[in-house]
């Protein structure tokens, strides 16, 4: 499903965020990108979101070279991928429902249809009763659950998450991990960046260890 072939992402002389990374992720896998800050985890996710382009090598998703996608083709691809950000990226002036349905609304999807899908997702993350609340009225854990619901709005085949528990305490982090496991169990491929080894152990995923932009270890737990 996802193939990285000798991918290097360089930001200038001697500043390689990723260096000759090759990786294959199969459909339905749960992959944790582990490593310290600056290891290249977020860069790899940005390449998978087609927010950046590899300096050399290829990033293929379902056989499509992401470097060839521009304009509306790139946007259409992004709609097939869910992304959960560390800082949630919720819009403070919009309600929970509007945040979850942000793309559907921009696409002109009828409101009733948006409402049905958002309700279902918010029910999954236990926030159906907060649909009309604003993000600032929610706790950090609730905000991240809204962000997860938003990422799932288009029923993505791939869910990318960049340190999704970075701003949460332990209990909330485990709660979020449970959600990710459920999402993965329903067939969605999950690629999550984290530096938290306890969480990696908790979700029991495939671990790709990055160090200074290179894959130094790739193994499945148990």
């Amino acid at each position: 499903m996802i193939t990285l072939a000798a991918v290097t992402r360089s930001y200038g002389q001697g500043a390689d965020a990723l260096l000759d990374v090759s990786l294959v992720v199969d459909k339905g896998e749960f992959v944790c990108l582990a490593g310290a800050s600056g290891a290249g985890k977020s860069t790899l996710l940005r390449l998978l979101l087609r927010e950046e382009v590899a300096s050399s090598g290829q990033v293929l998703v379902n056989g499509t070279d992401l470097a060839t996608l521009t304009g509306d083709a790139r946007q259409a691809y992004r709609r097939t991928v869910g992304f959960v950000f560390q800082d949630f990226k919720l819009l403070p002036t919009r309600t929970v429902f509007e945040n979850v349905a942000v793309v559907a609304r921009a696409m002109g999807v009828p409101r009733a249809q948006q409402w049905r899908r958002a309700s279902m997702l918010l029910q999954q993350v236990g926030l159906q009763h907060r649909m009309e609340a604003f993000p600032l009225q929610l706790s950090g854990g609730e905000q991240q659950r809204v962000a997860i619901a938003r990422a799932l709005m288009n029923a993505p085949a791939i869910l990318l998450a960049d340190e999704p528990t970075g701003n949460l305490d332990r209990a909330l982090s485990l709660e979020v991990m449970d959600m990710f496991r459920d999402i993965n169990a329903s067939g969605t491929t999950v690629v999550m960046a984290t530096h938290d080894h306890e969480l990696i152990t908790y979700v029991n995923c495939r671990v790709v260890q990055l160090h200074h932009g290179q894959v130094v270890d790739d193994r499945r737990l148990r």
């Binding site: 946007q75 691809y77 992004r78 990226k89 942000v102």
Partner: peptide, 14 residues
């Protein structure tokens, strides 16, 4: 909001 719309795949017309 516009940056987010871009990241989550809203088309340019949106």
């Amino acid at each position: 909001e516009i940056d987010l719309l871009g990241l989550v795949g809203a088309p340019s017309r949106a």
